[in-house]
Simulated assay, not measured.
Amino acid sequence: MRVGLPPIVGPHPRVLVLGSFPSEQSLATGRYYANPRNQFWRLLGAVLGFDAEAPYDARIAAATEHGVALWDVLHSCRRAGSLDARIDRNTAVVNDIGALLADHPGIDRIVVNGSAALELFERHVRVDVPAVRVPSSSPAATMAFDAKLAQWRGLA
């Protein structure tokens, strides 16, 4: 079993961005969206107006200052490699997103990063906060960056 990362939540979160489960590179480094080919930080930086190339701690600070919290739908699972398609759904353990929302009642929107995260979210999570899917920031998602960014702009 692989175990994911803890949530990143600043003092006044208003939006929770949920991925499916961290990549192998993210798990190895303990950093969200650590694969440099993943467009997450580039998308978030463009939406919120911060330098996507800044050091990780500066990117986290910028995200949380803008009220963005980060987490994943899954707490743990078995998966060969980093592809969401390889997640063994039978071993998946879901994060307690309801408890996170109860602890942070200012979160009034959930943004789900990609179709795999949405499928897991819809199957396993029951919360009263509205959720919207944005195109996956993964390098496996072949949509052009500008097309992704147009849909990610709703995050702000």
Rank of each mutant, 00 (worst) to 15 (best):
I8K: 01
R109H: 14
R123C: 00
E24L: 09
G4M: 06
Y32E: 10
S136R: 02
R2S: 05
L101T: 11
L44H: 07
A117E: 02
F121C: 05
I97L: 10
T29S: 15
H66V: 00
L16T: 07
E24H: 04
I8W: 02
G98N: 09
A99D: 14
S76L: 12
R42E: 08
L74G: 08
N90P: 02
L118I: 02
W41C: 03
L155C: 01
R59M: 13
L118V: 01
A117Y: 01
S137F: 06
I87E: 09
L5D: 02
F21W: 06
L48F: 15
G67A: 12
F50M: 07
W71A: 15
V93S: 08
C77V: 15
A63E: 00
M1P: 11
D103T: 11
P13C: 03
Q39V: 03
Q25T: 13
V111I: 10
V73G: 05
E24D: 15
A117F: 01
W71T: 14
A141C: 14
R126M: 04
V129C: 07
N95T: 08
I87L: 09
A144K: 13
V134R: 02
P7H: 09
S76R: 14
Q39W: 04
S82P: 11
K148R: 13
P6F: 05
A92G: 06
H75K: 13
R153F: 06
V125G: 11
E119H: 00
F50Q: 05
D84A: 12
D128G: 15
A69R: 01
Q39S: 14
W41E: 03
I97S: 03
